[in-house]
């Protein structure tokens, strides 16, 4: 990280601490805000949060590693998650998955070379009556067919 980027990150975290408070219970909202913006939580950010909340950096890492939606390594600009739980599975998730993999040329768990999309599976999205369901960043798409899935992905910048 460049010094300039570090300073910007520190400033950002200071603002987040002002917004959410500096108690331990503010940790998750702070991490979520950083994750939303940067798509991951860099080492430096973890250290700065630890300093400002006065807890050990290992604690921050421990919390990040627990939650599926938080990560310590960079991901694509957009995270596309396909529900893999049973009703979406029975509704044809496999065909959607194969179509997406073919179209993007990557497997689930990978990121496209242009850093546009990271592809992941997710457990039950609560759209079981309208499967298969696709979550693009925080937006959910119901009843996704292979064709519709590709259409949705093509619209992502």
């Amino acid at each position: 990280m460049l010094l300039l980027e570090k300073n910007a990150m520190t400033e950002e975290i200071e603002l987040l601490v002002k917004k959410h408070g500096n108690s331990r219970s503010a940790l998750l909202p702070i991490l979520q805000d950083i994750q939303r913006k940067h798509k991951y939580i860099p080492d430096f950010a973890q250290q700065e949060i630890a300093r400002l909340l006065d807890i050990h950096p290992v604690e921050i890492y421990s919390v990040i590693s627990f939650y599926a939606f938080l990560n310590t390594h960079p991901k694509g600009r957009n995270i596309v998650r396909l529900c893999q739980t049973i009703t979406c599975d029975l509704a044809g998730k496999e065909n959607v998955a194969k179509a997406i993999e073919r179209e993007l040329g990557i497997k689930f768990g990978e990121t496209t070379k242009d850093n546009r999309i990271t592809l992941e599976y997710v457990n039950c999205l609560g759209m079981c009556d309208q499967g298969p369901a696709l979550l693009v960043n925080e937006r959910v798409y119901p009843k996704v067919s292979p064709e519709k899935a590709i259409q949705i992905l093509n619209e992502i910048k």
Binding site: T87, G126, C128, D129
Partner: peptide
């Protein structure tokens, strides 16, 4: 935190 597979009433 409605996570049980097959549950969406809270939604």
């Amino acid at each position: 935190d409605e996570g049980e597979p097959g549950t969406f009433k809270d939604r």
